[in-house]
Design a protein around this nucleic acid. Structure first.
Lengths: 154, 154
DNA sequence: CTGAAATACTCAGTGCCCTGATTAATCCGC
DNA sequence: GCGGATTAATCAGGGCACTGAGTATTTCAG
């Protein structure tokens, strides 16, 4: 009977939270475009012409995953992908007209969905909710990125 | 410039939180056994002899995912899977000796990891953190399970 | 200018997560 | 008892997420 109480495990809670969000997104926002796809599209709307790696960095996706997401957005005709004439390693990405249209439509629906999702919390609690999650996520991401250890070698 | 600020989107934050957790788990707990696998093993330690569907319900995994996770735990020799003699549709699951040993070892490491993960928050904030996430996740899960609409048909 | 290092992207492999369709077994009304 | 509904598990298929290895291009030291 050495079992552990998972409701006090942040990782388990994070997974459940994400699954719950996934389901709600599917019913309230889109069955075609996923939340990560929208995030990437949103990054391209904010910064048209970025390369793949940067786009991934903006939304927190690694090199492999961002490649897949971009390939799907490309197949749907939501973005253009052209070689950077200045640097033949890069692809420059920007939303198509259709991509902009889809982004606008989904932005509205996403806002509605977030309201429903966060309805159990008061306005103050929502602020705290964002703050706490952001702090934990930022700190954990920082653990993997030594963030330029300036001088001290050891 | 109609781009949206994703740092106020709970779904996006939930994904980043989960990714951060995944990385930390990999470095601090195990590269072999994943967090969902540990969750299932933990459920079997708590309730030896449950069937697959129930185990999935306990940890929040759907029928397809729980089948994959159980198959992996089986391959590693961490659980036994036998037909229920009472009901030939079910498989009864219980941890092996090795499964119990692995569970004990990982439970310790997981506790250590959770401390690191939550270190950016004070003790009070950690309590709030759990409470808020749990409330949002529970509510969203409730939206999909009409939870036995007793009498009212409409 | 040339070869080594760094960088952007791709590919192969593993695992998580969902839906819809299918199969096998049990349950239940008659 | 028998046939239809329900239930447990599987299978096929799509998408997200990571690592390690490989390719092409650019950069930079000498």
């Amino acid at each position: 009977m050495a079992a552990v109480d998972l409701t006090t495990h942040p990782g388990h809670l994070a997974r459940r939270l994400q699954q719950a969000h996934y389901l709600l997104w599917n019913t309230m926002v889109s069955e075609e475009i996923t939340s990560p796809q929208f995030a990437v599209l949103n990054a391209l709307v904010a910064e048209p012409g970025v390369d793949q790696r940067t786009a991934g960095e903006r939304v927190g996706l690694d090199r492999s995953t961002i490649a897949e997401v971009i390939s799907r957005l490309g197949r749907r005709g939501l973005l253009d992908k052209v070689r950077d004439p200045q640097d033949g390693r890069r692809f420059l990405l920007r939303p198509t007209e259709e991509g902009l249209r889809v982004h606008r439509k989904l932005a509205v629906r996403t806002a509605r969905m977030n309201q429903i999702f966060l309805a159990p919390l008061s306005a103050d609690e929502q602020t705290v909710f964002f703050d706490l999650i952001r702090r934990v996520a930022d700190a954990a991401e920082g653990l993997r990125n030594p963030a330029e250890p300036a001088t001290a070698p050891n």
